[in-house]
Design a protein around this nucleic acid. Structure first.
Lengths: 418, 418
DNA sequence: TTAGTTACGAACGATACGTTACTAAATATC
DNA sequence: GATATTTAGTAACGTATCGTTCGTAACTAA
């Protein structure tokens, strides 16, 4: 087996070129692939032979192709990427639910399973639930475990991507330090990676969300806690210690404890989260309602408090409560200060806001934008996440697909056997 | 000329492989290149022939090679990258000086010229000085203008990289909106780009400074104004509007004007700069000296004020003045808050501090680090810039070299003629 | 049934690589 | 001065790839 660079390398390059064109252009004729790749027809033909032999391509049904035009002459065979040649697993282990999905290589979700985690006690139970759901979703999809080419898991907290364990996850008691990757390897023989949930969400936003085409992108998770996923040049920014995007720990207001400034630690919530997180919003609204003697808003907020359900406040603002509106304005102003830091440092094209608070809707966006404008030199677009609570699982799927592309559909891998 | 992928592409790839090995490994024998590239000897020979014909390589003097061992048998011919095959120009148009340098393709600085800009009045004069210095430094290097393959200019302020004009440069009166690139094109027929000075400094730090090997890197310019250059994965983060790293506009203390929060604009200094910039340091020291009745420090600061020369304060602190020391501590605490924002968002491996204030030395670094520690989740290394005021020009050189590598020394370009 | 159109595949020449073997060159050692 | 040693260069051969060209297959329409 020659190690150097010979004609076979050329072959691989061209095979991948054809495969890429096939995957991006959908089912198409040989002639289409010829123009798409710039290769000659025999070269494309040979490449297709290879792809067929390795199971990546096959002839599609004649009529399914992009025909429809003048049907004269010998009908062209339509070649199709066999997206069912392999599958990936993407899962989201969150504070409220576990969501796992199986997708094919084109990213079509074949099956998904979801389970509330409220009554689960301890990380061991969460892990067992994850294993069970994984088995179930694979069965539902009809995919044997051996056909899974890659898997990715999203989890809140800090994640050691190398070992595949969660280092710290305050929102899921007992979840940290469980060897998730190792445990799942008993089910799946494929490569498996664990990632921070917000980082996966930003992948999903760019893949299937509001952010298609944006290369410089910040996704802000705004819920009980606040975190950001950052994408630069279409690549995820993880940071040296996998701790990039920890916007929740920004200290914008010079909080002071009894002895000097507040010390930031991982075990507690950060200063910024305490200012704009869901519970901070409720508490502010409650305090203001009491101060202003607004019994109705006070009642609403008391009812919302157990679940930190901020929707009630935004509904009140929409319904015309001037007090609620002013509270929303205050919150937006605080939030904008944190966003401004990200804008000044990163100058992103787009900021997508997700998480529980973002469900307040476009109204909140407008107010935040107004405050942001006076704090930054540039004006990035703002948008709400459109993916809901599937963002993390979708991002995990995308991450697994990326892994498959690197390992199976790249020049280094393809045709290496022959 | 076939557009597709054929054996000739293979050829180019291998020629570039050999060239890269030659450039990275220094002058070496053919046998060394064979092991370095994994190609066969005939293939390497052919590639060298091509490189020789195109002027990129030649035989070196026998003894200059990495010999020194047993000198038995036919002495090996040593092949050398002809770093003199082309040159690049890097220039820094700063508030105090213009510095231009000519380097060969290996990055060796052949000649440099520097000129104070204090007595220059208006952007037109600065431009004329730049053109003159450019001509001079080329003459001194003995490089005809036609041999310059690429040029890059660094300027403070905001730069439109596409058109090559400076949009805003408060520190050089009249400099903005002068079409620098267009004017220089009358001297140089090569591609020419204009960049923000701090962005170039971060390139230089990674190339020749303290930051070699660090892929995630922040360079903070701490002088009269404050800005940052950000490198992620070894690539410069410019931002969608070329406005990334504007750390000087961070508003950490909730400054309030008469009607609401301060509005950030490009024409003025940013909130963070006003807190920790050189003049803020002097003013703080002066106020404290008066408040505490320290006549000596007051005198020192009054003398330092015209040029915002902060060295005097740090000297006093080193000399044992408790008051000066406490002022340094206050400044470091403020500065650490801004750094913390960058750390939380980016999680860099290393932060390099440059600019006038950084000349205070390692002492300042230690204090900043102490304050930073309690504000971040991770602890990046801190370092002082070792490049002094040549950083921007060196970075411009590096940027021009990158351009040459892309345009002349890549598979797309090399051997395209034959 | 025939003509026209389109797609596919085989044959050919050009070019590249790797392997192998041989020659040429330059120096040290005897 | 002859020999051994080490390296570079070159030529021949086999293999593999590409692009070009041309013949054949398949299908529609008259």
């Amino acid at each position: 087996m020659p190690a150097g660079t010979g004609p076979h390398v050329l072959r691989r390059i061209n095979v991948v070129t054809v495969l890429t064109a096939l995957r991006e252009g959908g089912p198409q004729r040989v002639a289409d692939l010829v123009t798409a790749t710039g290769l000659s027809r025999p070269a494309v033909s040979r490449a297709i032979d290879t792809l067929r032999a390795e199971g990546w391509a096959e002839d599609a049904d004649q009529r399914s192709g992009a025909g429809g035009e003048i049907r004269v002459g010998r009908p062209a065979a339509v070649i199709r990427f066999r997206s069912e040649a392999g599958h990936v697993l993407g899962a989201d282990v969150g504070p409220h639910k576990i969501l796992a999905m199986v997708s094919d290589l084109a990213g079509n979700v074949i099956a998904e399973r979801r389970e509330d985690t409220h009554r689960l006690r301890g990380g061991e139970e969460v892990l067992r639930a994850l294993l069970r759901i994984t088995t179930d979703v694979l069965a539902e999809a009809g995919v044997p475990a051996g056909d899974v080419l890659s898997a990715a898991i999203g989890s809140p907290g800090l994640v050691d991507t190398k070992t595949g364990t969660v280092t710290l996850a305050p929102s899921i008691p007992g979840w940290a330090s469980i060897p998730v990757a190792a445990e799942l390897r008993s089910l799946l023989a494929c490569p498996l990676s664990v990632h921070n949930d917000v980082n996966l969400a930003v992948l999903a936003e760019r893949w299937r969300g509001t952010a298609t085409e944006a290369d410089d992108l910040v996704f802000v998770q705004w819920g009980a806690r606040v975190g950001a996923g950052i994408m630069i040049d279409g690549r995820l920014l993880r940071g040296t210690n996998a701790a990039a995007g920890e916007i929740g720990f920004l200290d914008l207001a010079e909080h002071r404890g009894p002895d000097g400034p507040h010390i930031v630690t991982r075990d507690t919530m950060g200063p910024f989260e305490r200012q704009v997180g869901a519970s901070a919003i409720i508490e502010l609204a409650l305090a203001e309602a009491e101060r202003q003697g607004d019994a109705r808003l006070r009642e609403l907020m008391l009812r919302a408090r157990p679940h930190d359900d901020v929707a009630a406040l935004f509904d009140a603002a929409s319904a015309g409560s001037a007090l609620a509106e002013s509270i929303v304005d205050q919150i937006a102003a605080r939030f904008a200060r944190g966003l401004a830091a990200a804008c000044l440092l990163l100058d992103p094209e787009l900021i997508v806001i997700g998480g529980g608070v973002s469900r307040a809707g476009a109204r909140l966006l407008t107010v935040v934008e107004r405050h942001l404008r006076r704090r930054t030199l540039v004006r990035p677009r703002l948008a709400l996440s459109s993916l809901g609570d599937t963002a993390v699982a979708l991002g995990a799927t995308r991450s697994a697909l990326d892994d498959v592309e690197r390992r199976h559909l790249s020049p280094d891998a393809l045709g290496a056997s022959r």
